[in-house]
Simulated assay, not measured.
Amino acid sequence: MANRLTFTDHGEIDHGEIGLICNLTNTYCLVGSGGSENFYSSIEAEFEDVIPIIKTSIGGSSSVGRYCIGNKNGLLLPHITTHEELQHIRRSLPDGVVVALIENGLTSYGEFIACNDHMALAHADLRWEFKELITDVLGVEVFMPEYYSFFSGTYFALSNIGGLIHPNASKRVLDELSAALEVPVEYGTVNRGSAALAPGMAVNDWTAFCGSSSTRAELRVIDRVFKLREP
């Protein structure tokens, strides 16, 4: 089921933007350094002895969820990643997870891409060679909806089970994304009405972490869409 978390009450990141400091997959969880003890203990209670929890930074920032994109197959890191960070992440990931450093271009990949273990949804303006890199490293098909050119990963959350999109998207967009991704997509918000779903939450196939201001009604929608209450 979905859990409410607070990263920290001070610092560079708003305490409710859990998705900015957490990249959660079915095989590993990257979390930014600098959080509170309660934050890390809550994540450890959920994943200890299940998947590795990798405390790190990217380019010296705690915003690991903003800067990287990953799934069970691989992890893409931006060029601002330091050598020490890259080596630490590589050593900590499970065997078989491919890690690739993107040499140039964007850094905030979480704002332009949403992915699960089978499909990536990306902004239509991303370079073609980057689309090939996503396919090679993450092992997924890349869908770039030209009719939805303003798509942003900021307003979408995705797992292998379902997807959540901001309430202002049209019904046509919702239906076509559901068909393309082959998972049900529904409307939702997080952090008391925020449409910024990716910054406000992190989700895999059995749990989700949301900002501490998320309401019970929002958590119920998240539980239903991602089937988090089901075994």
Rank of each mutant, 00 (worst) to 15 (best):
L121V: 02
L133N: 03
V137I: 15
A122E: 03
F112W: 08
A100Y: 14
D136Y: 07
W128S: 10
S149A: 12
L86P: 02
V99G: 13
D125R: 11
G153N: 04
L76R: 04
S152R: 04
H123N: 14
E129Q: 12
L121D: 02
T107S: 11
G105A: 03
V137R: 04
E146R: 11
A114L: 03
V98K: 15
G74Q: 00
F130I: 03
P78H: 04
G110S: 01
Q87E: 13
L133W: 03
A100C: 12
A124G: 06
G105K: 01
V142K: 03
R90L: 11
F151S: 02
S108H: 09
A114N: 05
L106Y: 13
H83T: 10
A100H: 15
I80H: 05
E111V: 11
S149F: 11
L106W: 09
D95C: 11
L86S: 09
I80T: 12
R127D: 12
N116F: 01
H123Q: 14
S92A: 15
S108G: 09
V98G: 07
E84K: 12
M119S: 08
D136S: 15
L77G: 07
H123V: 06
E146D: 15
L138E: 00
E132S: 14
C115D: 05
T82G: 00
F112E: 07
